[in-house]
Each structure stands twice: as C-alpha cells, then as structure tokens.
Amino acid sequence: MIVRQQGNRFVLFRQHDHALVSADFALRLKEIDRFHPSAVFAIAMHDVGWRPLDRELLWNEEEDKPYSFMDYPLEPKLPAYKAGIERVEAEDPYAGCLCSMHYASFFEGVSDPAAIRFREEELTRQERLKTGMNPEERDGLERALHLLKFCDYLSLFICLNEPGQNTFPWFREGLDYFGRKLLPVWEGTRRLRLSPNPFRQPFTVTIPYQVVNAAREPEEEGQLSIDVVC
C-alpha cells in the first residue's frame, strides 16, 4: 500500500493502481517513442507483485498505523517482488529485466542476508536476460530504467501529497528527468503541471483510493482524478 496520513485517518492506494498511473504518464511524454516498446509495459506492471499483498491491509502494531511499501516487512515483500518480476518476464523478457533492475536497486549496500540474496539473484537474472538482447537493447536499459523511476516517482507524488501541496520530502526539489529538474506546480487542488513541461498534451489521471480510520474501520472509497496541464 501507499499510505498518506490525514490526522487519525489513512488514505490508501494500491501499488498496482499507482503503477498503472505511472504508465499513463509515460504514454503522454513527448519523448516516449525514443524508448524500447517494452518500457511502458514494464512501467505499468512494475508493482504487479504487490497485488496479493494489497488485498488485505497489514497493520503496524508498533506504530499503530498501516504498513506502507516503505516499511512493509521484508519476509513477505521479497517473495512478492520476485513473483512480480517473474510474471512480467514471462510475458516480456525485456520488461522483466527492467523490473528486476528497478527492484535490485532498492537493496544496494544493504546488510540484511535475505535482501542481499534477493539482489544477487536478480543480478543473475538480468545477466541471463541480457544475453537475449541485441546491443542496442542492452545499451538502452539504463535509460529505460530512468524513465520507469521518473514515472514511478511522479505517480507517487500524487499519492503521497495532499492535492495542491508538495510537502513530502522526496519531491520538494523537483523530479529528475534525465538530468533536468522538473518542478511539480499545482494550480488549485486538481490541476498539476510540470515546469518545464515534458508532455505532448493535457490529460487526466485517475487512481482509486480507500480511507480507513485509526480504529481500522473503512470510512470511504473513491477515485482521485488529477488534470495534468501543459
């Protein structure tokens, strides 16, 4: 889950829903035709491993709030990551390699044995998948990974900030887009633009959410819609 706290309430977004919004952003970029066709599929599916985990809310008893993707226990999370990568690889090996690279990057320099083992296994997977690529495809992997991370962060920006605000620490200085900083600028609470603008035309993204209170009771369900303007 992606969790945004509102006082004694928690706004929850499922990870796969957020990933689909990430792909919406990718498809509208001016430069999207310069990337491997599998890049958008990787972006859309990069969190598919979270679908089983997000069917049930896991509560952090120590913090008395829902676990988010940032503090979710590794024991169930790592197998879910692996299963998601394997699912993507089965449909599209290039996209599977990108998702593997994305998740392996989370565990650079870690000390947890399970995380180290996960990273090593994914690096092995990547080398195997690269043997089936031509030189141009291999050379484009890092650029496609940057695209995935940019679109991932932009979707997270919408989920982790209250509409109309930019208070979450990750995004206050803007988002890195291939060496350029793009600053999210709200125009009210439902209209967002990036400066400078990377998109071909205006569009709308929509993501479902649910709200639970501190007593773990569901309070609300709905759709968050944001108009992206140029």
Rank of each mutant, 00 (worst) to 15 (best):
R4C: 01
Q5P: 14
Q6E: 15
V11P: 00
R14G: 12
D17A: 15
A19M: 09
L20C: 15
F25E: 14
A26R: 00
R28F: 02
L29P: 02
E31I: 02
R34V: 02
H36Q: 02
S38K: 05
A39D: 03
F41P: 03
H46D: 10
D47C: 03
D47L: 03
V48F: 03
R51G: 06
L53Y: 03
D54Q: 11
E56Q: 13
N60S: 06
P66R: 00
M70Q: 11
D71N: 15
D71V: 11
Y72K: 10
Y72I: 05
P73D: 06
L74K: 07
E75K: 15
E75V: 14
P76G: 07
A83Y: 06
R87L: 12
V88W: 04
P93N: 04
C97V: 15
C99Q: 08
S105Q: 00
F107E: 05
V110P: 13
S111L: 15
D112Y: 04
A115K: 04
E120S: 10
E121Y: 01
L123T: 02
G132P: 02
R138I: 01
E142M: 12
R143E: 08
A144V: 00
H146C: 15
H146N: 14
L148I: 07
K149M: 15
F150D: 05
F150H: 10
D152V: 05
D152S: 05
L154Q: 10
L154H: 04
C159E: 07
L160I: 01
E162H: 08
P163R: 11
G164Q: 07
G164T: 04
Q165G: 01
T167I: 08
P169A: 05
W170L: 01
R172Q: 11
E173N: 14
E173W: 09
L175V: 08
R180I: 04
L183C: 00
V185L: 00
P196Q: 06
N197I: 08
F203I: 09
F203V: 06
T204C: 08
T206C: 08
I207Y: 10
I207F: 08
P208Q: 02
P208F: 04
Q210G: 13
V211F: 11
V212F: 10
N213R: 14
R216P: 08
R216W: 12
E217A: 14
E217G: 13
E221F: 09
E221P: 05
Q223G: 06
L224M: 11
S225F: 09
D227G: 11
D227C: 10
C230K: 14
